[in-house]
Amino acid sequence: MRLKQRAVNILKIIPVILFWLLIWEGVSFLIQSNIIIVSPRVTFARLFELAVTANFWQSIGTSLGRILRGFSYALCAGVVLAAFSSKIKIIERLFVPAINVINAVPIASFTILALMAFNSSNLSIFVAFVTVLPIVFFNTMKGIESTDPQLLEMANVFQVPVHKKIFYIYLKTLSPFVASAATTGIGFAWKSGIAAELIGLVSGTIGFNLQIARTSLNTANLFAWTIAIVLLSYIMEHIFRFIFNRVIKQ
């Protein structure tokens, strides 16, 4: 039943994709400039050309690895900081404004600051970290606040050990909040990480390839890389959603 529904959904989206591809093709035909816009045919042909090169996969691997590292650090740090902040008032007072500031600072500023402070190879790790940290932190805080106080009171009366309270009460309440933060955060981490690689000209990364395409006015490469980024973002979000849905169900 679920598979049937999924097939119906896919069939429904195909005409929409075809419609926008036609519009894209039409616009590129009207503009007739391969520097401003290339047609979908040229873009996908270039994507396939790139996909058979080692550089394409190495760049994806490097970017993906670093961004996922930054994302994972933020996921752990966000949950731990939120847990301490919700229990210890002084930590909350110190960290809530700091994380609000992190949330408000533009990615470009962080990238420039980070370029001055670290080795550029760590740039996307750092940028992904600061992008995802506020999302995870505030979502986890919200989750902790929504924990049923009556259940906690019950656990206290029965003198239930802390590890059991965490496993049976907090984890269950928090998992949808953390899952939602993670699925939102992975998309942000991906986009901001690649933007940072582009600004920082981190060699051997997706961002670097985008910058090379721009400076050499190779619009076909630029479009092909963009398509690759969008596809990877879509795949990652779905993988994470699948994993977290499994975790929540358990």
Binding site: Q150, L151, E153, M154, V157, F158, Q159, Y168, I169, K172
Partner: peptide, 16 residues
């Protein structure tokens, strides 16, 4: 003293 309670509300872990 160790205290055990049946609360007025069930206070069960509904998902367990």
């Amino acid at each position: 003293k160790k205290i055990s309670v049946v609360f007025q509300e069930d206070r069960l872990l509904e998902w367990e």
